[in-house]
Design a protein around this nucleic acid. Structure first.
Lengths: 204, 204
DNA sequence: TATTCTAAACCGACTGGTCGGTCTAGTTTA
DNA sequence: TAAACTAGACCGACCAGTCGGTTTAGAATA
């Protein structure tokens, strides 16, 4: 599948839109800012995308596309469920190190999801997929006896919250924790919480 | 300490500002929306607060004030560290049920923190305090042998991320998990991760 | 006790700057 | 030769903050 000139142009616009979003937030991101950032004229941007909102909706897709393939590649049946989770966490930790900006953009998308139905629907789909991946890992773990029987739905959400918690590293400095330490700690907490219980009566 | 007329007016303005924030986000929240919502004229609002931004900075304080006293009341030395954490989680779960809007506002404040230094500094202080409370509980737990020796800083952040994860219930419906189930699950994960280890070699 | 005074509290129309989107004559590209 | 693109003026809707004017509440005065 050859990358067309149009794809390149769109990527240029979207990358610029991301930079502007991270710096100014959605509402204060002007199309003229994207023009300045991308070096593409305003008319041309409107040639590709009908509105500012469409640019940012397309950015969600763009971001998802970049992540999904890699996650599916990393998560593999040939490993234990615990290993799969661990690799997943490490993948996100690495993503954070490579592109902290994307995690800042997440904040904007989350806030947008709260107040705009179109963004909300897109994010719902994104997170449904992500949760689906985690759930599949958990089911495997439970079936193989690696993990105790549990409510896979709830556990998946809890795990996802921990992963998305990387956003705190993009947002605030109230803590002196490193990304690696954070990932290490959530890995411990989650795997401990998932482990089959041998000493404490479990009521699940 | 009597509630003055001014306090009442300010609360009226701030409550209205919160409603508008949750519905429209910060940038799209017009002062005229706050006027409509509060029934207080624009001139009067500007009499109390010098700018729209000051209204919302004051809202952060207002929200913090409402929470700090209660948290400090709930968290008590006379209970085990695990119990303190559990009550803390339950408190937030209850807060969510009573005022989901506040959690939606959190999204906006987080996004604002990313792009405005004043909001960022306020949020830093808020979360520093909150982390301080969690750290104190963890230290107690460690000293009393309830919890394994661990990096209190990192664990506190991880715990806080889980608590703030309640925001997901305000934001998306990609999951069918109930708030109670979520709190129950994170409690399990966290307490399991904190428990002294008896069967697995621990490298901390 | 009624009146007057004054600062605080408040009102709402208005201003000037902003911004998404439109448009156009012209140029470049494939 | 049509598509892709430029540069940027322009429009109308919008909105934070302003400002001249009014009302309120409490103190002072006769």
């Amino acid at each position: 599948m050859a990358v067309t000139k149009q794809d390149q142009r769109k990527t240029q616009i979207l990358d610029s839109a991301l930079d502007v979003l991270v710096e100014k937030g959605y509402e204060s991101s002007r199309v003229d800012d994207i023009v300045a950032r991308s070096g593409i004229s305003k008319g041309a941007i409107y040639w590709y995308y009908p509105s500012k909102k469409d640019i940012y909706l397309a950015l969600v897709n763009h971001w998802v596309w970049n992540y999904s393939a890699t996650i599916n590649y990393i998560v593999s049946d040939r490993q234990s469920a615990a290993e799969q989770l661990t690799h997943l966490f490490e993948f996100f930790s690495q993503q954070f190190r490579e592109s902290p900006a994307v995690f800042k953009a997440l904040l904007e998308f989350w806030a947008l999801a709260n107040r705009d139905l179109d963004f909300r629907q897109k994010l719902e789909r994104v997170y449904q997929e992500f949760l689906g991946i985690i759930k599949a890992i958990l089911r495997q773990g439970v079936e193989r006896g690696e993990f105790r029987p549990l409510d896979v739905e709830t556990a998946a959400l809890s795990i996802m919250v921990n992963v998305e918690g990387l956003v705190w590293f993009a947002m605030l400095d109230s803590h002196s924790t490193s990304v690696d330490d954070y990932i290490h700690t959530i890995t411990q907490f989650i795997l401990a919480g998932l482990a089959p219980t041998t000493q404490k009566g479990d009521s699940v």
